Amino acid sequence: MQRGHSARSTGDRHVAVNTRAPFLLVGALAPGMTERGDGVIVLVGSSAARMPAPVGAAYGASKAGVEIPTRYLDHRVRPRGCTGQHRLPGPGPHRGHPGDARRTHRDARPDQRPRARRCPR
């Protein structure tokens, strides 16, 4: 947590960016798309919404707040020629994350390294 930020303000920021902003954008864009009868609204979720962890509860909860509304959105706009989709891109390669692109299997402990698979002949 950054200096000067309380857990409450951090949670508020997560909800503002990850839940409220998409909700407001959809509300602004969907009417025009449904009038034209064409369009796809894609909202980005996170696996953090489905897999609780010891840290990151505010982030996970804010992303969970996108998934169910997207299902309702799809149900509402589909008869008008549009779709609403929710995507889970998975972990990204950023510093310190287990999916960090700079890490290789050589950096892992031997018991964490991927095992070689034999190709069937």
Results as ranks from 00 to 15, higher is better:
Arg118Lys: 07
Gly99Ser: 10
Arg8Ser: 09
Gly39Met: 01
Tyr59Gly: 03
Lys63Ala: 01
Pro31Thr: 05
Arg115Leu: 12
Arg76Lys: 13
Val77Cys: 08
Phe23Ala: 09
Val17Asn: 08
Ala48His: 14
Ala58Leu: 04
Ala101Val: 00
Leu73Trp: 06
Pro79Leu: 13
Arg36Asp: 09
Asp38Ala: 10
Thr34Phe: 09
Thr104Ile: 01
Gly90Asp: 05
Pro22Glu: 07
Ser62Asp: 09
His86Pro: 00
Ala101Gln: 04
Asn18Phe: 03
Arg109Pro: 00
Gly37Val: 02
His94Tyr: 13
Phe23Lys: 02
Arg71Met: 10
Glu35Ile: 01
Ile41Asp: 01
Val44Lys: 04
Tyr72His: 11
Glu67Ser: 14
Cys82Ile: 11
Glu67Tyr: 03
Ala21Ser: 10
Val15Asn: 05
Arg76Trp: 15
Asp111Thr: 00
Arg13Trp: 08
Cys119Val: 10
Val15Cys: 07
Gly32Asp: 07
Thr83Leu: 15
His105Thr: 00
Ala57Asn: 11
His75Gln: 13
Ala64Tyr: 05
Arg106Cys: 04
Arg109Thr: 00
Met1Ala: 14
Pro69Tyr: 11
Gly37Asp: 02
Gly99Leu: 00
Met33Phe: 09
Arg118Gln: 12
Arg3His: 10
Pro114Asp: 06
His14Tyr: 13
Ala30Tyr: 06
Gln2Met: 13
